[in-house]
Nucleic acid binder design. Structure first.
Length: 553
RNA sequence: AGCGAGGUAGGGUAGCCUGGAGUGCCCGCCGGGCUCAUAACCCGGAGAUCGGUGGUUCAAAUCCACCCCUCGCUACCA
């Protein structure tokens, strides 16, 4: 037998280090990536889960300027906070790194030089506004002036907030610097480097045709539509200080554009993780599975593959690109850029990670935008997670305890196993197709089967508070055998979604690293000490805490 | 404006690619059952002209055209 060399790299879009992500950001890429990674572990596969903080770019540089700290300091402090909060949410990263690292710099330079050597880099000239006071070029968002269409005073270089027209910086009347508000602005010529995606279009097209069958619908369709319009060279350098300096004569005062070093960050972060990174990124049989929000599609379906192909360095190309829609929160304060409202940190102050993970995945915006409301959250936690699953586990274990029987004496009950086995198969199929919300619903359906079986079996006629009633022993053993193995199964299948509760349940079964193969093993002794419900409903206090985040109307 | 994604019972979703009785699921509602369990659980029922209008077809939620509404991308935001 050949050793199985198949490997999987799972990535989530890198969260931007400007501010703490909110729950919509979380469910849009990191959470599904983590859930999938945990499933791969359940299935016993060789996979790594790579993520990290995206640290460069204008917004961070500007915010740092305003706060009077260095960009690096700001980016690193937000990075530390994010890393901590993701860990508190039980994210199972193989490595969580950051883009402003030595290893990523190395990766960026190596890839840039390869692209350059292969003839995919060219110089492009453009005219940009320059502030003589701040001594810097101004991006479209940071130059303001009077709107030429409606006369609004605070129009920005990209758009007028008053009339909504799209603008160019040159359109503004009496432009001034958005940072220092002085009018000492001049338009200067500047030269940047661009990657010639137009040259790479044929290869990118082949790649897309071959792979898009496995992508989410939005990613596939959007990409086709972009490719039909034709790709154009895309700039990869910027006039700013915060970032990796461009290693080329005449460009020393420029840095790589954030999108360029962010996608390469997947590799750079892996390099920081371990020497083994090559076995994955250059392995003969690696699947790269990437999760992201819909706003990130074009970077991952065209620009990123273009970079990889153009480098000629033999990196694996994305196998699956799965883009989520948005989880919105119309009735809640839920804003990352404004820095207010329900973010990941204060969410954990209200309730534990299992509850958020379960509810978010149950409501995950797989095919269209979904609105997250307190009512929906409460419904999922109280009715689905607690009443169906949590209550099932607890009633079965209580029955077992009351029966006084040993788990090793129990007999598999045939009645319910067919349906449960079918649902378990569907659970696995859903995961293979990345339909994780469906997979979670199979878990709920298994609880339904368990609850139905209890009702129809009427175990209270067999088992009293202090043991099995006379003559009911055989039936009790058979019944409990079926029910207890469903509890174990739910503990295992719950692992990707609600890891804390899963561990709590599986600990009783002596399982610490759950695998799907555990489901086939015979039942061993159970530890029933300190039996208590695995979940609880949201309390009035928790609801009050949540309502603090409702939009004042 | 162009492009992408949605519009299915009171709310939320699946089905659409590969037409075939509105077929399904969750919550809510109405009625019944049970009491092992966290007032939890189980069974039954009501409730939808599948966004609109035309078209193709023996047959359309599903395919085609046009229109309306929501969200997103097209912005030197990532």
């Amino acid at each position: 037998m050949q050793q199985n060399t198949k490997k999987t790299i799972i990535t989530s879009a890198l969260p931007y280090s400007e501010a703490m992500p909110h729950l919509g950001n979380f469910v849009g890429s990191i959470l599904p990536a983590d859930v999938f990674h945990r499933y791969e572990e359940l299935a016993g596969r060789d996979s790594i889960f790579i993520c990290g903080s995206d640290q460069h770019g204008t917004p961070i540089e500007i915010r740092a300027l305003k706060e009077g700290v260095s960009a690096e300091h700001l980016a690193d402090s937000v990075h530390e906070r994010m890393k901590k909060v993701f860990e508190s949410f039980e994210c199972s990263f193989t490595h969580y790194g950051k883009t402003n690292s030595e290893s990523n710099k190395k990766a960026v330079y190596e890839i840039f030089e390869a692209l350059d050597k292969n003839g995919y880099i060219k110089e492009v000239e453009s005219v940009m506004p320059y502030c003589n006071i701040d001594k810097r070029f101004l991006t479209d968002r940071y130059i303001e002036g009077k709107c030429p269409y409606c006369g609004f005073e605070g129009a920005r270089g990209d758009q007028c907030d008053n009339c909504g027209r799209l603008l160019s910086p040159q359109d503004l009347i009496d432009p001034y610097c958005g940072l220092c508000h002085n009018k000492d602005i001049e338009f200067k010529k500047t030269v940047n480097l661009a990657i010639e995606l137009d040259k790479l279009q044929p290869e990118i097209l082949d790649f897309v045709k071959m792979r898009m069958g496995a992508w989410s619908r939005n990613a596939a369709n959007k990409t086709v539509s972009y490719l039909e319009q034709g790709l154009e060279p895309r700039e990869i350098t910027r006039e700013m200080k915060w970032g990796f300096p461009v290693p080329r004569k005449g460009f020393e005062d420029k840095v790589f554009y954030v999108w360029f070093d962010a996608v390469i960050g997947y590799i750079g972060i892996s390099m920081e993780w371990s020497e083994k990174w090559k076995d994955y990124w250059k392995g003969p049989d690696t699947e790269l599975i990437q999760f992201m929000g819909k706003d990130n599609i074009e970077f991952h379906t065209m620009m990123w593959p273009g970079i990889l192909i153009g480098s000629g360095l033999g990196f694996v190309l994305p196998h699956t690109i799965y883009a989520y829609e948005y989880l919105t929160a119309k009735g809640l304060k839920f804003s990352k850029s404004r820095g207010v409202g329900l973010n990941m940190e204060n969410a954990l102050e209200i309730t534990g990670p299992d509850y958020w993970r379960f509810a978010l995945m149950y409501l995950a915006p797989e095919s269209s935008d979904n609105d997250f409301t307190i009512a929906l959250f409460v419904e999922v936690v109280n009715k689905i997670m607690n009443d169906k699953i949590g209550n099932y586990v607890h009633r079965v274990l209580t029955l077992l305890k009351n029966s006084g029987l040993k788990a090793s004496e129990l007999v598999e009950d045939e009645k319910s196993t067919d349906k449960v086995a079918m649902l378990t198969r569907k659970y696995a199929e859903d995961f293979e197709a990345l339909k994780m919300r469906e997979a979670l619903r199979e878990l709920v359906a298994i609880a339904d089967v368990g609850n139905e079986t209890i009702s129809s079996s009427r175990p209270w006629e067999l088992i009293g508070k202090d043991g099995v009633k006379l003559g009911g022993e055989d039936r009790a053993k058979e019944f409990l055998g079926g029910m207890v193995s469903i509890v174990r199964r739910m503990g295992v299948l719950m692992w990707p979604f609600a890891p804390d509760a899963s561990s709590k349940i599986l600990k009783r079964f002596g399982i610490s690293e759950p695998r799907l193969s555990d489901l086939k093993k015979p039942l061993k002794e159970l530890n029933l000490e300190g039996l208590e419900p695995v979940f609880s409903k949201l309390s009035d206090k928790q609801l009050k805490d949540l309502e603090r985040f409702e939009e004042d109307s």
